[in-house]
Design a protein around this nucleic acid. Sequence first.
DNA 1: CGAGCGTGAGATAGCGCTTTCCCGCAGGAT
DNA 2: ATCCTGCGGGAAAGCGCTATCTCACGCTCG
Lengths: 355, 355
Amino acid sequence: MIEGDAPTRRTAPATLHDVAREAGVSLATASRSLNGSARKVNEEYRERVLAAAAKLGYTPNLSAQAVARGTSTTVALLVADIADPYFSSLAAGVVGAAGDDRLIVTMAETKRDSARELELVRAMRGQRPRVMILAGSRDIGDPNAAALEAELTAYEQTGGRAVFVSESDLPFRTLPLANRAGGRDLAVALHELGYRRFTALAGPETLRTAHDRIAGFAEGLASVGAQLPADRLVRSSFTRDGGYDAMRRLLEAGIGDTQLVFALNDVMAMGAMSAIRDAGLEPGRDLAVAGFDDIPTVRDVTPRLTSVRMPLERIGEQALRLALEDGADAASARASSTDVSTEVVLRESTPGPAA
Amino acid sequence: MIEGDAPTRRTAPATLHDVAREAGVSLATASRSLNGSARKVNEEYRERVLAAAAKLGYTPNLSAQAVARGTSTTVALLVADIADPYFSSLAAGVVGAAGDDRLIVTMAETKRDSARELELVRAMRGQRPRVMILAGSRDIGDPNAAALEAELTAYEQTGGRAVFVSESDLPFRTLPLANRAGGRDLAVALHELGYRRFTALAGPETLRTAHDRIAGFAEGLASVGAQLPADRLVRSSFTRDGGYDAMRRLLEAGIGDTQLVFALNDVMAMGAMSAIRDAGLEPGRDLAVAGFDDIPTVRDVTPRLTSVRMPLERIGEQALRLALEDGADAASARASSTDVSTEVVLRESTPGPAA
DNA sequence: CGAGCGTGAGATAGCGCTTTCCCGCAGGAT
DNA sequence: ATCCTGCGGGAAAGCGCTATCTCACGCTCG
């Protein structure tokens, strides 16, 4: 047999069949030995199978298992932007929790486009994932909402479980985030520090998360007799550059008597601080800034940023748990939001107004 | 038929079989219509099938396709820590590029543990991914290296493609990162600014990436007649907290005549800057700081951080491209590193030594 | 001492697909 | 007219598994 010294050729991966033959047992026995089925198998056989599997470097074909079993071990995760610390922390939580349950997570980016999101949901359905976690925020009045609902309803009818992180109007399991309460608490805390006149750097008007945070903030101010006038809102995109840009425009238009700028999330706040500096002012001293989310890096910016802590990794874990836990109808299945409650963290970016 | 008003029950997803029946054609025809096989199918039949598929909300079962075709459309991505901006940017690049090719990416975290990494590679092999991207840095003298090599060799023999991002000693496709050259350029640039006495905040001694950056930095200094004494190296973990901690220890021990601290990556640098501030000093003015990677947030810290730009998203894309492109033997298959070349970005954290 | 039974290994029927292979049916060449 | 060819639909054989079913074997029990 002159195969020469040709390099080892491409071979098909070892199959269960190969293992069974190598061990001299039936396919059924091999399968039972390697995955701990309900049935018992003779210890001697079991060892033979295990040895054969190790020898051949056998790894069960997950796809085949999924087909045969009719269930997969996949978790599908949809985020707006992976590079955004908010989503990457959340993803870390999901991936971590999934690993504990030996689930595999597949991930895709919606890029904040609901049409794209819809398309992705369709595509991911093909994986027959056990759960699907939608972490991008919802748009109010999203024209694709109905289609998305239909798609997810179909998905759930076929045994899947959809979970939204943060409020949605859709009838699926939801991990509510305390955006509103957080906004409220922040407003009260800032008021207590002595701040009275605020301007908000808001995300797109339709973004549910942005809406809730602003609404909460306004409520909080109202509760202490202050207010956030409607003209004190600058709209932009929900990103770092959006924050920078909004702040720049605000400064150009004149900040009036604003004492504190509330950016609706930390990355926007960081952009805003840079814009403030680029205008020759000192954030914190000349103009206070507050953010939202408390992403890790806000501890390392100067001045350290006041924010509302969202336990992002934990939220990711909880989202998966919520999806996995059985029973209860979707409507009532909202995680106890105490688990993911927020907390205002006051730092140097809000030193209190000049005396 | 009295089904009552029972809520719609859980049903199995529509199968290709259902679609074929609905359309009144054979399974084969349905399959051919929905996936554009080599064979043509009568336009009228095709439309009937497409209509039936739409009506039933059919989505092809990817697992079944993978089993039948013998190939998957999965990309497996291994990173050290998803929440780390370095890896999340890289992941964004991979996910983006994968989306263009209609590939699905599954993701796992090694937590910088090579034993865990090995285990994950094994597990992911079960998915029969088309490519596997290992993005965590290699350890020099990693005791699991041989086992990893064996595992990946087996993987490639069965038709998969493994790619390392950044240098490894293992014989697989590699996307080399210009860690050494970047370190060299940085050293020269800093020297040119007038800095002469440096201390490095290094990652673990065994981390290949850290090693290369330091080595390049030392080389760069040597090339201009300066040097980095061996006792000017503080070891710690490769994270933000590692940077903070190393800097704290350095300050406690006394920084001597050090003019500039070179943190081996940006998150460490950010930690270090916080440590400097917590010690009552002003980064940039009292002690210059330089980082590496140029992650997005370094534009927003104060002072803005001097760094070496690594086009992370692009690197992620390239890694996938490299994995996908066929031909050539693994050894020679290294991406042209010009595509992912680095660039020193001087900013305010290195204003030049006091005159 | 034979019927009944639990045990556990093996054969086999799927799971939802793809992809041969087979065949009947035009249409062109002879 | 006859033969061959190309075309395209359908039957069916897998793909790598799991789970049901079958069945031989060694027991216990009356």
